[in-house]
Deep mutational scan, measured.
Amino acid sequence: HFTSQQLQELEATFQRNRYPDMSTREEIAVWTNLTEARVRVWFKNRRAKWR
């Protein structure tokens, strides 16, 4: 589960860029205190939901 702060950060990034690269995902991981893998999976799932 994600905190509302984490989701806000993830959503804001998603609005700007639906396909963040590795370095962007790592930055998000640092800001949100999540692993890069969790961030990558979140984006994958979010893109699926967005379609």
Rank of each mutant, 00 (worst) to 15 (best):
F14E: 03
A29G: 06
V30K: 15
R18G: 04
A29F: 02
F43S: 00
E9F: 15
W50D: 12
N17R: 03
L7P: 00
N17K: 04
R47H: 03
W50H: 07
E11D: 03
N17H: 07
R46F: 02
D21V: 05
I28W: 02
R18K: 14
L10M: 05
T32P: 02
Q8M: 12
V30Q: 13
V39A: 02
K44Y: 12
W31S: 15
F43I: 01
N45Y: 13
R40W: 05
T3D: 06
L34S: 13
R38E: 15
Y19V: 05
P20E: 03
Q15I: 09
N45T: 09
Q15S: 10
F14D: 02
R18Q: 13
T3M: 04
K44P: 00
A37N: 09
A12I: 10
N17W: 08
V39K: 00
E26K: 14
W50G: 07
R18T: 05
K44L: 08
F2D: 02
N33C: 07
T32H: 07
F43T: 00
E11T: 02
I28D: 00
T32V: 10
F14A: 01
L34N: 06
R16L: 10
M22A: 10
P20H: 04
R47W: 04
R40Q: 06
S4I: 13
W50F: 09
L34D: 03
A37V: 12
A37I: 13
R16A: 09
A48D: 08
T32W: 08
M22E: 08
T35P: 07
L10H: 02
Q6E: 04
E11S: 01
K44C: 08
Q15L: 11
S23F: 09
W42C: 03
W42E: 00
E9A: 14
W31K: 15
A37H: 11
A48V: 09
E26W: 10
Q5I: 11
L10S: 01
V39D: 02
V41D: 12
R40C: 06
R51G: 07
L10C: 02
V39Y: 02
L10P: 00
F14H: 03
R38L: 15
A48W: 07
E27K: 13
F43N: 00
K49D: 07
R16T: 10
R47E: 02
A48N: 08
R46K: 05
P20G: 02
W31T: 15
E27F: 11
H1V: 11
Q15G: 07
D21M: 05
T35R: 03
R40H: 07
S4G: 08
A12M: 11
A12E: 11
E27Q: 14
E27N: 10
E26Q: 14
R38S: 12
D21C: 08
R25H: 01
M22L: 14
Q8T: 10
F2R: 02
E26N: 12
Y19L: 03
N33H: 10
R16N: 09
T3P: 02
V30I: 14
Q5N: 09
R25L: 10
V41G: 10
F14R: 02
T3N: 08
N17F: 06
M22S: 08
V39R: 00
E11Q: 03
E26V: 14
N17Y: 06
P20I: 02
F43V: 01
R25Y: 07
K44D: 06
A12R: 13
V41F: 12
W50M: 09
Q8P: 01
N45F: 13
T3W: 05
R51V: 10
I28G: 00
Q6K: 04
T24F: 08
S4H: 13
Q5F: 14
V39S: 00
E26R: 14
